[in-house]
Design a binder for these strands. Structure first.
Lengths: 111, 111
DNA sequence: TTTATATATAAGTAAATGCTTATATCCTTA
DNA sequence: TAAGGATATAAGCATTTACTTATATATAAA
């Protein structure tokens, strides 16, 4: 089903920011908590939270609290999820970032 | 071949404006001159020209002068042209707009 | 119940964005 | 060569954006 021009423009605008685009690509690999993402970007924690909020507000990602951590992941129920996936396929993998997080012992495991 | 995050973000940012997105979708149907586009948007001619310039600056569209008119169309040589096409496929057709232009006798023919 | 850690929100700010009007440039035609 | 139409550029302005620092809230642990 086609979306309207306005709806698609909104998604593209959100993903037209390199921080958010990279963020979403990372979340495609696996859920991350905020503090993990803070380590992956040269930016303050509030800046990361604000980007996550924008993505969550349109339904592109969902949050789930696990203890004191809040995890974010792609929302597979999002109406434009398949479209977003085709966009993300265009991007180089960011899994190396997550691996180096783990090597640095910065991965947060809370299960 | 994958583009970098930054390159893709730039394209998405450009297309994340509803005016430009609609404009590019229209140009997917056929080349248009500036004055035709001005009729299709509730916006001044300079505003239209400024949007076209941004799209042209990254190579997404190309211009060709025909007499006193300047025509713009999608640039099939653009490195991200296939990617742009998959984006445009997500959008509803805008050909009705071009048809109503013609009914109003506003189509510019210069060949 | 105090303290520490994780996250969100508030407020402020510099820069970018998308328009406007005014004007310049380019081409065609009388 | 003068006039008119099509387009581009310049300058100005209001709004949005993406950050910052400071502070509030929530959970966990001592």
């Amino acid at each position: 089903m086609k979306s309207t021009i306005e709806e698609v423009a909104l998604v593209l605008k959100l993903l037209g920011d390199k921080t958010r685009l990279k963020m979403v690509k990372i979340l495609e690999s696996r859920e991350c908590c905020v503090c993990e993402l803070v380590h992956l970007f040269d930016m303050s924690q509030p800046a990361i939270s604000q980007h996550l909020r924008k993505l969550r507000d349109v339904g592109l990602i969902i949050e789930s609290r696990k203890g004191q951590w809040v995890y974010y992941g792609l929302n597979k129920q999002y109406e434009n999820f398949p479209f977003v996936c085709t966009l993300l396929n265009q991007l180089p993998s960011q899994e190396g970032l997550l691996e180096s997080l783990e090597k640095q012992g910065l991965r947060v495991m809370c299960d």
